[in-house]
């Protein structure tokens, strides 16, 4: 099931990349996708973690929200970089990742890193170790909204 969906995704990517839509190149595209799926199956890299079909409905909404957060956080961090004097106060702290699967934790960790101001520096079973640039970013994260949203992402499917 995941192999088929990976094949379709790969073919869509091929169509985006290729730009030549003669029968020969469509055929080569199908052939390439087949080769890649066979190699991927051999590498055991196709499963619900690497190809999360079950999340495809809920991901776009999450990305929109994340995009908004990224813009806000960027503006905050840029202000801190530009302002003279003591605008930063780095700290390291742990937050609990409420997701029960590894994929959820990875999404959470990467979302944290994508939002400037906070970087995931370690994953320790259920805890994420975070380096934050300032109290504002720290408080944002500790309010737990992102955690809630990522958890909802996994449960909603």
């Amino acid at each position: 099931m995941h192999a088929i969906s990976l094949g379709l995704t790969l073919f869509a990517t091929w169509l985006l990349l290729s730009g030549v839509y003669t029968p020969l190149f469509i055929f080569l595209g199908v052939l390439s996708c087949a080769i890649v799926v066979v190699i991927a199956l051999r590498m055991e890299v196709i499963d619900r973690e690497s190809h999360p079909v079950h999340l495809s409905m809920s991901l776009p909404g999450y990305w929109l929200w994340l995009g908004k957060e990224i813009v806000l956080a960027n503006i905050d961090v840029t202000k801190r970089i530009l302002s003279p004097g003591q605008a930063i106060n780095p700290s390291v702290f742990r937050v609990k990742a409420g997701q029960d699967d590894e994929l959820g934790k990875v999404i959470y960790a990467n979302s944290i890193t994508l939002t400037p101001g906070t970087v995931t520096i370690d994953i320790d079973d259920d805890d994420l170790v975070i380096h934050a640039l300032s109290e504002t970013s720290r408080d944002d994260l500790e309010s737990g909204e992102m955690d809630r949203r990522v958890t909802a992402l996994g449960d909603g499917a």
Binding site: M43, E44, D47, E49, E102
Partner: peptide, 8 residues
Amino acid sequence: GRPAAKGG
């Protein structure tokens, strides 16, 4: 570790 989901 292996790539499979729980095999790490």
